[in-house]
Simulated scan of single mutants.
Amino acid sequence: MGFYQLSKEVRQQKVAEMNRAIFDDLQLGHDDQLITYFSDEDTYIRKTAYLAVGKIYKTKKVLQSAILRVLEVLAEYANEKIRQTAINAAGEIGIINFAPIEHLMEKGLFDAHHSVRNAVIGSIKKMGEKNPEPVLAFAKRFLHHEDKEIRREICHGIELRGRTHPQDILPLLKELEHDKTARVRNTLVHVLGQISYKKDCLATVILHLKTWENEDVVKKALDEIIDVHDRYKDFSALTQKQAKDYIDLHYFQNH
């Protein structure tokens, strides 16, 4: 039976049991329970496990070195679910302390399995939102990597920070405006749309787009921004018409 098919009471008991088992593993220098939970077929079990590791890291400083050591080991396992969950656990740590897990993120970015690479992108999103300076510096290193998928994944990974602080990621996004790969440019356009519809974000995005050189990318981005204001109308600060009128006035009439 899956985690969320259990009753709330049973789920709470399961989480408490997992937290105790993981704490005991870390305290005793073992990894048996961690391996069991990190390799579980149920996504929610694995998520509960990596959240537990992150919480222990934040609250039990005496165990931080042990946690980093065990993640080093688990990130090398043949089972991709274990590697994926190790990266997600490292991402929880990177929210408050990026330096010790930076090399794990770099290793995961080049993992052979897509689920591990996706864990890196998800981790960049959550780390970049809370701990942007070192995480965005890390992302910047890979913006012009020879592998187009690395460029695309990094572009996608910095999106979440941009939803609240578009000014932090727009200079990085601009570095991709002349990317030769359509898949990367399409992701770039998608991210520009996603960082445009929250309160006070549209003005920042439009002002920055006025400095871009690739007119085709900018046109597609503007179309996406207008479309996003309809697709996410229940969450947008402006209506689609207001967004279109703003773009007409502040981009086309003053560009």
Rank of each mutant, 00 (worst) to 15 (best):
Ala52Arg: 02
Val120Glu: 06
Val191Trp: 05
Val62Pro: 04
Ser7His: 02
Tyr37Leu: 13
Gln167Ala: 15
Lys174Arg: 15
Ala203His: 03
Ser123Trp: 01
Asn97Ser: 15
Asn214Ser: 07
Tyr50Phe: 15
Leu202Ile: 06
Glu102Tyr: 00
Leu26Gln: 03
Lys14Tyr: 10
Tyr197Gly: 07
Arg83Gln: 12
Lys148Cys: 10
Asp245Ser: 14
Glu92Asn: 11
Ala75Asp: 13
Lys180Leu: 09
Glu102Phe: 00
Thr48Gln: 14
His103Val: 02
Lys198Arg: 14
Glu80Ile: 03
Ile247Trp: 02
Leu104Ser: 07
His208Asn: 15
Lys220Asn: 09
Ala52Gln: 05
Arg83Asn: 04
Phe138Asp: 01
Thr85Ala: 06
His114Phe: 11
Glu133Ile: 07
His114Ser: 10
Arg11Leu: 03
Gln5Arg: 11
Asn19Asp: 15
His114Ile: 15
Gly29Glu: 09
Phe38Gly: 03
Asp200Arg: 00
Asn79Ile: 03
Ile22Asp: 08
Gly128Phe: 01
Glu153Lys: 01
Ala86Met: 07
Leu74Tyr: 04
Ala49His: 05
Phe110Ala: 04
Cys155Ser: 11
Ala203Tyr: 01
Leu26Lys: 00
Lys81Ser: 11
Arg141Thr: 12
Ile93Trp: 02
Asn254Pro: 07
Gln240Ile: 11
Ile150Gly: 01
Arg151Ser: 10
Asp179Gly: 03
Pro166Tyr: 00
Glu133His: 07
Asp179Val: 02
Leu68Asp: 10
Ile169Tyr: 09
Ile247Met: 08
Ile22Gln: 12
Glu224Cys: 09
Lys220Met: 03
Asp248Pro: 06
Asp216Leu: 01
Phe110Thr: 06
Lys180Pro: 01
Ala243Leu: 09
Leu173His: 12
Gly193Leu: 06
Lys61His: 13
Cys155Leu: 05
Arg46Gly: 14
Asp248Glu: 13
Ala237Phe: 12
Asn118His: 08
Ile35Met: 12
Met127Ala: 08
Lys174Ser: 12
Thr85Val: 09
Arg117Lys: 14
Leu34Trp: 04
Met18Trp: 04
